[in-house]
Design a protein around this nucleic acid. Structure first.
Length: 885
RNA sequence: GCGCGGUUAGCUCAGUGGUAGAGCACUACCUUGACACGGUAGGGGUCAGAGGUUCGAACCCUCUACCGCGCACCA
């Protein structure tokens, strides 16, 4: 048998296995299968996106869940796909167009522009799919979907038409969040507020009826003064009561405007006077409606001033206009003062510019089934992990507002509404003969013009949980088992998917539990950099996962990331942690390599339980515990705990202790003992590989194959079960002895190290003990100590100054090191102080009658045992100390 | 303003009432028949602060401080 190389080489192994899995169609879900179903729909990445660490995290988690389910005997569907990402993709193409041809989309026209987007998509699209394959994702690629697939697009239109017919979707002229860069309306959820340092301008408005009397108004937006159509104060504000019904002179685009009283004004803020600008502020718009104020719009769609009445401001950008307006006011004596001011400004999530409240004609959805959606999560028909997101979800639903679903972009699902040509421009009449809303275009298209707008991308992705499945697939795999996604899209996507499922009833029966989109939602962490900042392209702090895969292997990346991904908290990413993942892969590789050097493995190792060494019993007991702990961690989606436990088990329990101890037998002459030791190695290795497979699919598959643990792929091997170990009498006794030996070994090693002796020098140790049960273990203890010899001598009398350690098995001496009495005395002093300290604490506790009476008996007993052990240890230490003087 | 997280070793983080833990980093020794991407040993913590509950608190309760996030307000 060829010896394995010293290091695992993921670059050749990983692609090899992925290709084989694909050839074997291992990831393809069978709707005819009699196995129970397990399904996940992948949150679709943007079609032209590339893999980020966020994807690596989410998709690794999904892969882990799917691979584990496959091993557990489920028929697994992991359904992948991509999102057309309306505004996002369009913006990218527009940017490219401006850079390369210095053109806007309007220069090209809708048809040509869309052709360019498709070109762009052909060139840059789907890269992420190949990258997911490098990560090892076990998706059913035969079912890959795209939000612009014909069938999917038809489903989106159908959803629109259904909701329209129920009058849940309506068209209206309303105040929306306007993105002046994307030139589109956006939803409330796409607005993020950021604190901005600006100025508060105090502007004087002269009272028309009382010349020389002025009203002072505090505003952050002097550039919208031309759109003021009233002044307002709180009806209870006595300072201004006498002005009610009078008028003020608007200082820019000079005009008389009425003074009104409205409850919406906070008398505490500024001067207690508000300038009412219905066209450019949501609150002002409402005030305007209450007082029948005219609406004057002085801003163009791109954020420039449109006000010929003030030529110096006309056509200026809104921010330049702000300064200019202040100048003009100053010149007209209308600016009382300015103060520095910090306030929150709504920014477009997409363009990162301040949004403009703007009145425009848009399509809106009045959310259906919000009560039901709330109840579903509250009553745990859908469970969130971590559960605290339930509150965030509830808060949103309780304050839900209509969703602006139309976008003034070209790339996306076009609104399936047509207007009769003769009626164009008459937007007041929404229903009836002049508008047609349907899944297919009207039968006489020449007489109609389709709505220019497209739908919010999320209006298509909210159907993702089931419109990605054909009927047969849906019958077997819907509702999905779990959704894995980031908490940042809990409103955008998770909540809306729940609402869509409730509204459209995609399930096989009417029952609500057959219609929910998923049973569980696991919210992943958000990955930040070492300094706690969000990963972003502009900061350049986002490592390319492909580079990490090249450097550390996909398995190293996966394992390293999973081990540090806590539930419910952000992750601080550090490449060191990925390096640890890679190192762990090497460790596992090498222990397998060691095993392989001693002959072929047993696929199904038969062990004679009566012949097991205490070390074997101990490691098998630890394996049992590990299986339990992992099971519990999976139940709560604690992937980091699973990874950490496996790491400790492999590295510490198995490699550092069991394998090292078993070398006595492996290198020994007793063939039967050797065979047993190797069989235990195989047993544990085989179990470990299966436990690790979901995290490190390639490496475990490679080792599974090299070690010939199974004829078939490890993917479908059953998970290891706990061993009963019925043939072992006194399992705890075995474990205890093994533990005592390990403690003794550590004490002996410490003695050597404290005595400043090189760690590789073969030493002679002497153990003074009355215990006869360990005589068989002497060679192993000696090996673990790197001792030349370990002598058991019950009557040993050390020469003064011989270093001694008190161990669970007796006193360990290191005679060679009799060098310096003074130093040994100091060392013993330190030990004595330590033991005395602990002894005092335990003693005090046991003297406390409250403790003895009220603490559980087992705890008290534990303390008693500890007390006697400490007392004995202290006596021996003192004895050794006296011998020195 | 309302709500949700967090504060434990230099760093990243585990730790649901019974002697404070891991990895990295650090120090010392070691290429000893799997592994230097390794082995062995070691140093390093008033568990943010204050009060309370309890025989006993990192852990449960209350308050405070600081950090992060969401929602609302934002003239």
């Amino acid at each position: 048998m060829a010896e394995l190389p010293k290091r695992y080489d993921p670059t050749s192994v990983e692609p090899k296995w992925y290709q084989r899995w694909m050839e074997n169609r291992d990831f393809i879900a069978d709707t005819k299968s009699s196995k129970p179903a397990f399904s996940i729909v992948m949150p679709p990445p943007n079609v032209t996106g590339v893999l980020t660490l966020g994807h690596v995290l989410g998709d690794t988690i999904q892969d882990i869940l799917c691979r584990r389910a496959r091993m557990q005997g489920f028929e697994v569907l992991w359904l992948p796909g991509m999102d057309h990402a309306g505004i996002g993709t369009q913006t990218a193409v527009e940017k490219h167009l401006r850079r390369t041809e210095n053109k806007t989309r309007h220069d090209l026209g809708r048809e040509e522009f869309l052709r360019r987007v498709l070109e762009w998509q052909d060139k840059h699209g789907g890269i992420i799919i190949e990258q997911l394959k490098r990560l090892g994702c076990s998706c059913d690629w035969s079912r890959q979907r795209y939000t612009l697939d014909d069938a999917y697009a038809a489903a989106v239109r159908k959803a629109f038409v259904d909701l329209y017919n129920q009058r849940l979707i309506y068209r209206g002229r309303r105040m929306v969040n306007w993105d002046p860069v994307a030139l589109s309306a956006i939803s409330d959820e796409e607005v993020v507020s950021k604190p901005q340092i600006g100025k508060l301008y105090f502007v004087r408005y002269e009272i028309v009826e009382e010349p020389e009397r002025f009203l002072e108004v505090a505003t952050t937006r002097p550039e919208t003064i031309m759109a003021d159509t009233a002044m307002a104060f709180h009806p209870g504000d006595k300072r201004y009561l006498d002005l009610l019904g009078k008028h003020a002179w608007r200082p820019l685009a000079r005009e008389k405007i009425p003074i009104v009283a409205d409850e919406a004004i906070d008398p505490e803020f500024g001067t207690g006077i508000l300038k009412v600008t219905p066209a450019h502020d949501a609150v002002d718009f409402e005030i305007g409606e209450r007082h029948n104020l005219p609406v004057i719009d002085v801003l163009d769609a791109d954020g420039r001033i449109n006000c010929p009445a003030e030529p110096q401001l006309d056509l200026l950008d809104r921010f330049k206009a702000r300064e200019k307006a202040a100048e003009l006011l100053q010149g007209r004596g209308a600016l009382a003062k300015t103060e520095p001011y910090e306030n929150n400004v709504g920014f477009s999530d997409r363009s990162d510019v301040p949004i403009e409240p703007r009145i425009s004609e848009q399509w809106f959805l009045r959310y259906p089934k919000t009560e039901e959606a709330l109840a579903l999560v509250r009553d745990h028909l859908i469970r969130f992990f971590p559960a605290h997101w339930e509150k965030v979800y509830a808060q949103w639903l309780e304050n839900i507002r209509d969703w602006c679903i139309s976008r003034q972009v070209w790339w996306g699902h076009r609104v399936p509404a047509w207007y009769r040509k003769s009626q164009m421009g008459n937007s007041k009449s929404q229903r009836g003969a002049d508008i047609y809303v349907g899944i297919e275009p009207p039968s006489d298209p020449e007489n109609w013009i389709q709505d220019q707008d497209t739908l919010d991308t999320w209006f298509s992705s909210w159907l993702w949980a089931y419109e990605t499945m054909d009927d047969e697939t849906r019958k077997k795999f819907y509702p999905t088992s779990v959704l894995v996604t980031g908490p940042d899209i809990i409103f955008f996507w998770v909540a809306r998917m729940i609402i869509a499922a409730l509204e459209f009833d995609p399930g096989k029966t009417e029952k609500i539990e057959d219609n929910i989109p998923f049973h569980h939602v696991f919210f992943t962490s958000i990955i930040r950099d070492k300094l706690g900042r969000k990963m972003s392209k502009s900061l350049g702090n986002s490592p390319d996962p492909l580079d990490l895969i090249d450097k550390y292997g996909a398995d190293g990346l996966r394992f390293g990331l999973m081990r540090i991904a806590p539930t419910g908290q952000d992750i601080r990413f550090d490449e060191k942690q990925i390096e640890e993942g890679r190192n762990f892969a090497t460790k596992l590789w090498n222990v397998a390599r060691f095993r392989q050097m001693h002959g072929p493995s047993e696929p199904a190792p038969a062990i004679d339980e009566h012949a097991l060494s205490i070390y074997a019993v101990q490691v098998l007991a630890r394996l049992n515990e590990t299986i339990d702990q992992i099971e519990a961690a999976y139940r709560d989606y604690q992937f980091n705990a699973v990874a950490q436990r496996l790491y400790e088990f492999v590295w510490s329990d198995y490699c550092d202790w069991f394998v090292e101890a078993a070398k006595t037998e492996i290198f020994g002459t007793d063939e039967s003992r050797k065979k047993t030791a190797l069989a235990v190695m195989d047993l544990v290795l085989s179990a470990t590989l299966r436990l690790l497979h979901p995290f490190m699919p390639h490496l475990t598959e490679e080792l599974w194959s090299l070690m010939t643990f199974g004829k078939d792929s490890i993917q479908f091997a059953t998970p290891p079960e706990k061993l009963a170990l019925d043939g072992v009498n006194d399992i705890p006794g075995n474990c205890k002895l093994a533990g005592a030996i390990y403690d003794t070994v550590q004490a002996g090693r410490n003695l050597r190290s404290e005595s400043k002796l090189p760690s590789n020098k073969k030493m002679r140790f002497i153990l003074r003990t009355n215990d006869n049960t360990i005589s068989a273990e002497i060679p192993t203890v000696a090996r673990l100590l790197t001792a030349e010899e370990l002598v058991v001598d019950r009557g040993y009398q050390p020469s003064p100054g011989t270093p001694v350690a008190i161990t669970p098995l007796g006193e360990m001496f290191l005679p060679v090191a009799v060098v310096d009495r003074e130093r040994e005395r100091e060392r013993l002093d330190r030990e004595i102080v330590k033991v005395e300290g602990e002894l005092r604490i335990v003693e005090a506790k046991l003297k406390n009658s409250s403790f003895v009476d009220r603490a559980p008996a087992a705890v008290v007993e534990q303390h008693r045992q500890r007390l006697s052990a400490l007392t004995a240890e202290l006596a021996k230490l003192k004895q050794a100390h006296e011998a020195l003087t």
